[in-house]
Design a protein around this nucleic acid. Sequence first.
DNA 1: CCCTTCTTGACTAATCTTGACCTTAATGAT
DNA 2: ATCATTAAGGTCAAGATTAGTCAAGAAGGG
Lengths: 154, 154
Amino acid sequence: MEERSISDVIEAYLKSILGDDPKIEIRRAEIADHFDVVPSQINYVIKTRFNLQNGYLVQSKRGGGGYIRIERVNLLDDSDVLEMVIDSIGTAISEKDAIRIINTLYEEKLISHREGDLMLVAISKATLKQDDRRAEARLRARILVALLTRLRYE
Amino acid sequence: MEERSISDVIEAYLKSILGDDPKIEIRRAEIADHFDVVPSQINYVIKTRFNLQNGYLVQSKRGGGGYIRIERVNLLDDSDVLEMVIDSIGTAISEKDAIRIINTLYEEKLISHREGDLMLVAISKATLKQDDRRAEARLRARILVALLTRLRYE
DNA sequence: CCCTTCTTGACTAATCTTGACCTTAATGAT
DNA sequence: ATCATTAAGGTCAAGATTAGTCAAGAAGGG
């Protein structure tokens, strides 16, 4: 995977550390300094690449001895996590967030490449396009939740 | 092959790069600059020459480190059959007819049991339920067509 | 001439980067 | 104990950097 932006580089760096251990703790200022970016950029990377929909749990603490803890969660072993993902979808979801979830399912080997593609086309903007954007997001949520629920109880 | 327009030249250029690798990533502004055309011309070339019907998948990202990714995909043997099924669906389809089609796909071994289940969930009345029955049938047709279209390629 | 395809650019949208300002926690002085 | 200080991380919005859309006009081919 080509790293085009510094955010991509930081993402790859954090994931390389995560390769060893399923859980890491970093100090935000340290990472920011290492890549010569402002500290809030680390928040941006975490928010866009290490959220629950991507299969990560993040906790942090401020003040002296503060840290950011990133943990890779396994959707297979932890059926609660899949339920959390379903809950996080709620009654509406954007195409982008839905894609993120399906990608995670594939990376976690819960679904095959082809199954993932089928799910992707079923929830895609091109397929569901409606006049009312909110109606589209609600519909997408219903379909995705139905698909995930099916995966949960097979 | 006679290239009579700059769009043809750009098409040939992109395909020559694709000769090596089944997947390439370009920066729109770079290609546009190289051929001295406006950036949106690249979109035109991609839209008219690198769409799914022509056997190409295209993905892109905007913003810093943005790109356009073009991937060549292979048509499957059953592609023609699927196209005929797609044509028969038209713009609307009932749940019963959709189930019949998906069952046939499974019996013909075009899809696995699990893929069939996922497709069934995606087009089921329970998932798509709408006030307007015709709108529901139209939506179901769009989703089913999208799924079948995906099955035509690998 | 008419119709399709191509070319161009103004406007829009998504993503990334940066920095000012805010909140929380630990520590030490009184 | 209380409060000020210091040391973290959080939020948000503006600006920068790409790509996308759309429609008007030009160019080509019957």
